[in-house]
Simulated scan of single mutants.
Amino acid sequence: MGRQAEEISESVDRGGGDYDPGLYRAAESVPAEPFGGLSDGLRDRYRRDGFLSAGGLIDERRVGEAIAGIDRLIGGGVPGFRGIQWEAGVKGRLADLDLEQRRHAVRKLVYYVDHEPRLHSIAHDPAILALAADLLGAEPELFADQALLKPPGIGREKPWHQDVAYFDVRPGAPVVGLWIALDRTDPGNGCMHVIPGSHRAGPVPHFSRRDFQLCDTDVARDSVVAVPLDPGGCLIFDGLLHHGTPRNTSERRRWALQFHYAPAEAIWRSRDERAAYRERRLAVFGGDGLDVTC
């Protein structure tokens, strides 16, 4: 895996805030299709729309293993693992929380694949790597791994963004993301929402508002579609696709794994290379110096 995993630490979320619910008013929902590999038609659809919704990418057994792996990490079963971001409301109370309470207090986990073999196995599954290689047109390398957990009732919005705006990879390199549902996801508990074809417009400036995000006025609201998924289903998407998730207003949790792959030559191998990539990334995506109101 790439060196993106350096210098992480346990933290408390500092983002969020009120937003216009109309940002996620979807014109339609895209149903997942049973996935049996990439056909020419699916490749063409991915290039056109920037995403595919695949049902059953991992089976029920592996969904259960993934959940057990997350429980082990958030329950303190891996001494020294620090890649947990907690919801803001639990700051100072972590020592008093049991496992069930911790499940409802985590926003996300990062860079866990080298700490939990069941999650490592999913991220490096030969079928998943073959899928990423097909879409990248190159040998894939995993460079970022997250578990995105929206607790019931409090899981906050992730504003509209492009994932490449966050990553120090070689500018212009293709990036494929896999967002794998571990629970049933729908608009009520914060499923993925996307804007088909938005990746073809290229990079868009991002701003530090409720998160590092697209300006709300740049969101093509008339083109929003929701992508509900059953456990084991996956959103496969281009790193430039505009996407976001509303807050979880339901009494159900929403857990998902997320993996990002890029060609090996696009991933930094030294601190100097990372610094150069980051400088070039922020020159494209860092929009806070612009005279706009989001």
Rank of each mutant, 00 (worst) to 15 (best):
Y166F: 15
I236V: 15
V175E: 08
A181L: 08
D183W: 01
V219C: 00
R170F: 04
D238P: 10
V194F: 01
A220S: 15
P196R: 14
V204N: 12
R170D: 09
I180T: 12
F167K: 04
K150Y: 03
A181N: 05
C215T: 04
F207H: 15
V176A: 11
F237K: 07
S198P: 07
T185V: 13
L229C: 09
L178H: 11
P231V: 03
M192Y: 11
W160H: 04
L235S: 15
P228C: 04
S198L: 08
D230K: 14
H193C: 10
V169Y: 07
D216Y: 12
A181W: 03
H193S: 06
R221I: 06
P151G: 05
P152G: 07
R200T: 15
L235H: 03
W160S: 02
A226L: 01
A226Q: 12
T217S: 13
R221W: 04
V176S: 12
A220D: 15
L214T: 01
C191I: 10
V227Y: 02
F237V: 05
H206G: 06
P196L: 01
R184I: 01
A181Y: 00
I154A: 12
Q213D: 06
G153A: 07
L182I: 06
V176D: 08
G190L: 04
S223V: 01
F167I: 00
A173Q: 09
I236M: 11
P228A: 05
T217V: 12
G172D: 09
P174L: 02
Y166K: 05
K158M: 13
D218L: 06
P152E: 04
P205A: 13
L178D: 11
I180Y: 09
K150I: 10
G188S: 15
N189F: 12
D238F: 13
D230A: 15
D218E: 14
G202H: 11
S198D: 03
Q213W: 04
S223Q: 15
P187N: 08
G155D: 02
V224H: 05
L178A: 06
C191A: 10
H206M: 13
G197D: 04
Q213M: 03
H161C: 06
G153L: 01
A181M: 05
A173N: 09
D183I: 04
R200Y: 08
F167S: 02
R170Y: 03
I195Q: 09
L178E: 11
G232Q: 13
R170I: 02
H206P: 12
V169T: 15
D230C: 10
R184H: 12
P159H: 07
D238E: 11
A181G: 10
K150M: 00
V225E: 04
I180H: 05
D186K: 01
G202N: 06
T185W: 09
L235I: 05
P152K: 06
H199E: 05
S223F: 08
D163F: 07
A226T: 00
